[in-house]
Amino acid sequence: MNQTQTSASTPWSRIAQHPQYQELLRSKRAFILPASLFFVAYYFALPILVGWWPELMKKPVLGPINAAYLFALSEFFMAWAIAYVYVQKAGKWDEQARQILAKESSDSAHH
């Protein structure tokens, strides 16, 4: 992994300047940052609600099943849903990355 040259024009530095690459980074950030903030907030809502408002969470909602258990169960589906959306998005990012790499290898062949 240390075989990379540090000259000004490495494949890495050329790609880094590429507008398509900048777009890829923006697109990733635009999903991963808010999605991470969301799942962290959703996750901590459970211990906070259970710890500070236990009476509220003890209320039966569905037959004998209370709000605390239903919320806990919903965490699993929340995690699966975010994972699903992420995989859908990541498929598009893979395609973008492939285009960038293909363009880079054809460019460097011309030099």
């Binding site: 996750y43 459970l46 259970v50 258990y69 806990a72 965490e75 699993f76 975010i82 994972a83 992420y86």
Partner: peptide
């Protein structure tokens, strides 16, 4: 129920692995 709280944390933690760590680690490491 308090025991079930562990179960929840142990799954949701995988979102950190999925969204943040797994792919960069695979690409950069050996």
């Amino acid at each position: 129920f308090d025991g079930f709280m562990y179960s929840v944390g142990w799954l949701v933690a995988y979102l950190t692995v999925l969204l943040v760590v797994a792919e960069p680690l695979r690409n950069a490491g050996k």
